[in-house]
């Protein structure tokens, strides 16, 4: 039972990290458009049709934050 004294604070730290990551994601605009991202997976790419803009827009999201 004494292990709880260690494990519970560790869980708290994980919680803090999870919230921190979510804040970063929200602030970098990843949750601004909840309508499109849900559909994006359905827009299947044809083989050979390199999703140029996808890659680039991903990188720009990071560079923005």
């Amino acid at each position: 039972m004494e292990s709880l004294y260690l494990l519970v604070p560790v869980a708290l730290i994980f919680l803090a990290i999870a919230i921190k990551v979510l804040f970063w994601a929200v602030n970098s605009g990843q949750y601004d458009d909840l309508d499109t991202e849900g559909h994006r997976i359905l827009f299947d790419e044809q083989p050979g049709d390199a999703p140029v803009s996808e890659d680039k827009s991903e990188s720009s999201k990071r560079s923005d934050s």
């Binding site: 601004d32 458009d33 309508d35 803009s53 680039k56 827009s57 720009s60 999201k61």
Partner: peptide, 9 residues
């Protein structure tokens, strides 16, 4: 270089 469109706004 990149295009980002927001369907909501």
């Amino acid at each position: 270089m990149s295009v980002r469109v927001n369907a909501t706004t």
